[in-house]
């Protein structure tokens, strides 16, 4: 009897080990960016680690015109004045920590900035048919595991921009690979943006995040568009 119990104990241990070995990596928790390259600022880090997007000539020309307008004092975007929502991947570049909540069926990226959480469906669903796809600031994201890497495919963006000068539009596709480094202390995310309307070739770059200390908790960013100080962050533009 005792011998059988001990044998069962060993077998159960083996089965549990097998079950655990098949579990997806646990990406949950808080993640934050750091300056590993001496960039001096978050923009400075990008200059050192993110290649410039290779854009089509007409897109480059549009960017040049916008830059000229800005240099002349025009305001190209009013997002900060009006506390408008920022689109993905803005919070992935932000200084604030962001977190991952993870279940078998869904992974959600939650952040502190003025934007929507990003839902990555892991339940095997497909993207909606293009006619039924509701464009959104975070797009429609579906994911699956390839070994230890979470691979996420996203379509259906409203628009926006990427580090390295890339653009995002309704026809943009984003492929990401999330995987843990250094025994789970770091998280690597490789972004690949494709869109024949903007890019000559896919725009790929990697960002790495450090796992925040245990006990880290979320802050709540607020923005008051009726506060003159908030509006004051944008100088009155000469254009109407």
């Amino acid at each position: 009897m005792k011998k059988q119990f001990l044998l069962a104990l060993v077998l159960a241990g083996l089965v549990n080990t097998k079950i655990n070995a098949q579990k997806a990596p646990d990406l949950s928790g808080y993640w934050e960016r750091r300056d590993d390259v001496g960039g001096g600022s978050f923009g400075g880090i990008f200059d050192k680690i993110i290649p410039k997007a290779e854009l089509k000539p007409e897109v480059r020309e549009e960017n040049r015109r916008n830059a000229a307008r800005q240099a002349a004092g025009d305001v190209v975007g009013f997002g900060s004045k009006w506390c408008l929502s920022s689109s993905y991947p803005f919070f992935m570049q932000h200084s604030a920590a962001w977190s991952i909540a993870q279940t078998d069926n869904e992974i959600v990226q939650v952040h502190e900035t003025h934007s929507f959480p990003r839902h990555i469906y892991m339940d095997g669903r497909k993207h909606p048919e293009p006619a039924l796809l509701n464009p959104s600031s975070t797009g429609h994201a579906i994911g699956h595991w390839e070994g230890d890497a979470l691979v996420v495919d996203t379509v259906g963006f409203i628009g926006g921009g990427t580090p390295g000068g890339g653009k995002i539009g309704p026809g943009t596709r984003l492929t990401e690979r999330f995987h843990l480094l250094d025994g789970g202390k770091k998280l690597s995310v490789t972004f690949t943006w494709t869109d024949p309307a903007f890019y000559v070739k896919p725009h790929t770059y990697e960002l790495q995040y450090y796992r925040s200390e245990p006990g880290t908790y979320a802050f709540e960013e607020y923005c008051h568009a009726d506060d003159p100080k908030q509006s004051g962050s944008v100088v009155a533009p000469p254009q109407k």
């Binding site: 646990d26 949950s28 928790g29 977190s99 993870q102 959600v108 939650v110 003025h114 839902h119």
Partner: peptide
């Protein structure tokens, strides 16, 4: 949307409105 982390360390609740989600540690 309730996302109960498999790690057991946190339950997050997100909403269809822009702004902070709930974090229940």
């Amino acid at each position: 949307d309730i996302i109960q982390n498999a790690s057991g360390k946190e339950v997050a609740i997100t909403f269809p409105y822009r702004g902070p989600s709930r974090h229940i540690y």
